[in-house]
Design a protein around this nucleic acid. Structure first.
Lengths: 196, 196
DNA sequence: TTGTGTCTACCTTCTAGTAGGAAGGAAGTC
DNA sequence: GACTTCCTTCCTACTAGAAGGTAGACACAA
């Protein structure tokens, strides 16, 4: 019941935290029950099956990202600043350990064993992120601020891959700073071109 | 037993394939028993616990990588060619779907819920890969062939992150070719520097 | 009086792991 | 050669606990 959020929200929040730790098969309804302070059966009332829960979670994650992106676009016009803000967002999440991993990046690694409904939502997130980054790259190269060496779509995919790979490295080394260290050169390269 | 490999090798091979599909919590001894054609209890004879099995697997994976790298170094001198071969290796694995993911990259995403012994082996692999790539970058910038915009260590980490992120994208989109598409610009950038 | 949220109690299936025995080979002893 | 002993490998049969999920009752509010 509702202190700040509804039980259903608390379940989703707990599930997200558990998924970012260990993926789809790394948590159970019992774990959520412990974290939220209710019984397993109560979770089934809100989300009849685990698939329902995670599908809802990923869909909501994507919707949140979509609205965050559109409010970002209203506040920041410069494409390079948009990319910087995007990278900073993840850098902060990793430093704070609040949300140390992108839910969808983590679930993507488990894709072959994910229930199809969940897998579809994860794919949809990748498409959304790629499309947005591509649009930012396009604007940056047409207008000003970004120097692309390849087509916008390719630069977008490469940028997203760097972000996801850097998350993995930060987790593997246990040193959050490595995320920013990896991303900084990528951003520098997009903002200017050095001659040899 | 023993057509081409011992039972113990067959178990390890099966476990690796299962881990690359769904991670540490994504497979069970029953899955391996089905795949290898023996009973669960027989697996426990070779690897008393699941931790034993996966620790052995990851350690062997790292040792294989170390010997593969040192034989690579004997055949290929040019640093850029080394990086290209490294990227090609993974591109082929992903295309063939034989080993579509680096075991350690996948396990790294689950690190927080991994048994400590396994987590330590995964970290050791990251350190090995990073050290090797750093040495390649150093040689490439000192001798010839590579144009680095940053310190060798940073370039190495960024390169590794690109590889891991590209694996994730290839899996998410279900299109293996995206791996090569993402890596190609990175290799081009290291091989030459474009002016604007 | 109908719906919502929670509970206890239970079910089935899967989980890693154990106990103990059967089969077979290798090696030593007579 | 025959016998014993040991070791390895695999088996059947089992355990305890965790997994996802269900049934049905209680409380309370609209």
């Amino acid at each position: 019941m509702s202190n700040l959020l509804t039980t259903s929200d608390a379940i989703l929040a707990s599930a997200r935290s558990l998924i970012t730790s260990g993926g789809y098969n790394g948590f159970s309804y019992a774990d959520i029950a412990d974290a939220v302070g209710i019984r397993k059966a109560s979770i089934h009332h809100h989300f009849p099956t685990k698939v329902d829960l995670v599908r809802t979670l990923v869909k909501q994650y994507r919707c949140d990202a979509e609205s965050a992106v559109s409010s970002l676009e209203q506040n920041i016009q410069n494409p390079l600043d948009l990319l910087r803000t995007y990278a900073d967002h993840w850098a902060q999440c990793i430093e704070d350990a609040s949300r140390p991993f992108c839910v969808c990046a983590l679930l993507a690694s488990e894709l072959p064993v994910l229930p199809p409904e969940v897998a579809a939502e994860v794919k949809a997130f990748f498409c959304f992120a790629s499309n947005w980054l591509t649009s930012v790259m396009e604007r940056g190269s047409k207008e000003e601020g970004l120097y692309l060496s390849n087509e916008p779509r390719v630069e977008a995919e490469a940028f997203m891959a760097s972000v996801h790979g850097a998350m993995l490295s930060a987790r593997a080394y246990g040193t959050p700073k490595v995320f920013a260290t990896i991303l900084a050169p990528t951003l520098t390269r997009l903002s200017t071109s050095v001659t040899h």
